[in-house]
Amino acid sequence: MVDKAKIKIEIRNLSVFYGSLEVLKGVNLDVEEKEILAVIGPANSGKTSLLRTLNRLNERNEGFRMQGEILLDGRNIYKKYSSDDLRRVMGMIFALPVSLPLSIYDNIAYGPRLHGVKKKSELDPIVRQSLEAAFLWEEVKDRLNLPAMKLSGGQQQRLCIARTLAIEPEVILYDEPCSGLDPVSTTKVEEAMRQLKNQYTQILVTNNTKQAARVSDRTAFFLMGELIEIDRTEKIFTAPRDQRTDDYVTGRFG
C-alpha cells in the first residue's frame, strides 16, 4: 500500500533556521496523497516550523532561512509558486481559532471573494457546503450574519476549517487544532478530518499523542528538529523502531 500511494509532498534535506538557531535539521519526508499524517513530538521539536515552512508563512519571521527543497506535485514551492498561490493550495488551521472580525457568512466567503467569486448566488452554496463539511451548518444556519467571534471556541475552530475548505485547497495543515478545545469539540473536529480524507491530503501537528493515534494513517515523530521516525500509525504506537519514539508515545517523557 505504502509504495503504491502517490506522493503529494516531498521534503528533501530541509533545514530551517531563525537567525543562527536551527529548528529543523535535514528533514526528509514524503506525504502521500489523501493521507492524514500526524506529526508528534515535544515542544521545540520543530513541528510548527515545519507547517509554517510548508505554506511559506515562515517568510514573515525575521531571520528565517532554509536549505533543501519542498516539492508539491513535483514543483518546488519556493520557486515555482507565488506565496499566495501556494497558500490557496495549502490551507492552514491555527492552534487558536482565528475568526476574522466579520460575520460567519463573510468569514467563509472571505477566501472565495479574494479569488474572484463575487455573486451571492455562487457564494451561498460554497458557504453552505463548507459549513456542512466542517459539521457546523446545523448549529449556525439560522444566524449566518452573526459576528463569528460570538461562536464558542470549538465552533470557531470548525468555522476556520470551513473557511479553509471554501478555497478548495489540496492540502490542509493543522497546527494543534484542538489544543484549546473541549473534548466534545475535539471529537467533532476529528470527525470532520476523517470525512475530509477522501478529498484532501492532511497534515496534523498535535501535542496529543492519543489524537494522532485516533485519526492518522501515518505518524512522524520529531525531536529537537530531527525526524526520528515515520511509519504507519499503529506501528509507531505499538512497535516503534527507535527507543526515543517508544519513550514519547508511552508517556515516559514529553
Binding site: 506565496s83 499566495d84 490551507g91 479553509t164
Partner: peptide, 13 residues
C-alpha cells in the same frame, strides 16, 4: 498578527 496570518493563509496577497 493572527488576523493577518489567517488572511494570508487563505491565499490573500
Amino acid at each position: 498578527q493572527s488576523f493577518r496570518e489567517a488572511s494570508l493563509a487563505l491565499g490573500a496577497t
